[in-house]
Each structure stands twice: as structure tokens, then as C-alpha cells.
Amino acid sequence: MEHIIEVNSLAKSFGDKLALKDVDFRVRKGETIGFLGPSGSGKTTTIKILTAQLAATAGDVRVFGEPVHLLKDPARMKKIGILTDNSGLYDRLTVQDNLALYADLYDVGKERVREVLEMVSLLGEEKTPVKKLSKGMKQRVTLARAILHKPALLFLDEPTSALDPTTTKHIHEGLRELNREGTTIFLTTHDMDEAEALCDRVAFLHDGEIKLFDTPQNLRTMSGSPTISLLLKDKTTVTVEPNESGAAAIAGYMASGNLLTIHSNEPTLGDLFVQLTGRNL
């Protein structure tokens, strides 16, 4: 099995503050991995260490099989795309000029600029100076820049935090498409729906530690069994378990014509996170 990212006993401290403690994980080629955690849990710190923007205090971090500090080499940087809140745009330049610069740096054709603008729903804004864009639009330009060269490995730090649901959905489709074409994606989010929608595996990060790391499906099973809510004609709600007695109860209400609606309560990743850490996402 080929590991694109390998992290062993990673720790990071800022002065006395321990931001990451003993973090271990591996990412396989082609996976989409999500780090889910509340504010201050260490998500950005993890991405910065993986992209050699910060040095680890302890531990071994490898990307493409090599120690991460060797990353800074044109051939290797071409395989990586990065979206973090600290990678700025040139605000006097237009959207087009910002992307044209990176198209040249990555040695990709200018026609690719159109493609990525379509993916982030910004076609038509080519000539707009970046300083006239909204926060969410700037975030989308930065995302477009990160995927311009179809990187083998893409790091996204809260890629949709400033976006509306429709744009978010469109961008999720684009990211899945990129992933199908072979890009391994490492993203952070505090949005459990985003983690579920995109990720093959999700890590729960809390206080600088990975509490759980599994597929969204397995995580959901862990957080308890689903129940079924029945809304009756007299506006009362009855909750039953998905078993034989539940089935009998539902059949009874249906036969008597008392049943109005039926819906299942599947446990969410958010529920599990609260159970595990006592904290909301």
C-alpha cells in the first residue's frame, strides 16, 4: 500500500502551549481525508507542518515518502496544492492575472484558468480586481489557484468556511471529480456534513490529539443505533427502535390509518464528537 503521507509521533508546541501531542496517521494514495475538530484543536497547525510551513517539535513527518523539510524543490512543489488562510492574493491584480501568474509558475496552459474558474463558479469575474471581491469569492480564487495544476496531493484548510450552501455543493462536486482523476485530498473542516460528503476517512481532532480515525460510516455506527420517529394524526410523536417490535408498532399505526409521517434518526458525526469530547464542533 502506497502512503502519500506518513506521520509518526508528531508533536508541536508553541512555547508552553502543546498544540499537537503524539499524532500518528497515514494517508493512502487516492484517499480523501478529513480532519474534523473545533476551533483551536490543531487543524491548521497540522496542515502547516505537512506543508513545511512550520517545523515539528518532535516526530517524523513524511510526504511522498520523504522527510517533509525536503519538500521545497520545484519538481515536488508541482505535485502539491495548498489552500490556507495565510496564502494571500494580489489585491490590485484581477482574478485572471492572479491565476495567470500561478499558471506560469506551475507551467500549465492559460486555458486551464477557465476550467478552474468554472469549478469555483467565478466565470465572468476574470477582469475584477481581487480587492473588489467578497470574502467568499476570494476564498474561491485561492481554491482555484490551489487546483490549477491538478496536484497529486491537495491540502485544504477549511475550504468552504465562508461559502453559501449552493456554492459549497458545486465545489464539493469539483473536488470529488479531482479526486476521481487521482488527486489525494487532505482537508480540515469543522463542518461534519462536509466531512461526510467528501471524505473516505475522518479523524476527530480534539486538543491536539486524534480521538478516532475511521470511515464516516463506521463512525456513525459507533455513535449508537438509529431510531425511527413516527408522527401521528393527533400530532404526537412516537419513537421506536428499528427491530421487530418497532416494525409491529409501525404496522399497527399504518393499519389504523393513524400515521402521518415517518423518519429515521441516524446518529451524526456531531453526536459522536460530543459523546467523545464533551464539546460541540
Binding site: P74, L105, Y106
Partner: peptide, 14 residues
């Protein structure tokens, strides 16, 4: 100041 140097140094540019 605008964090654009960071972006350049995370690209293939040396």
C-alpha cells in the same frame, strides 16, 4: 504584509 510571498514560496518558485 499581504501573505503573498508565502504563496509564492509554496509554489515551484524558488
Amino acid at each position: 504584509e499581504k501573505n503573498t510571498l508565502r504563496g509564492l514560496l509554496l509554489s515551484p518558485a524558488s
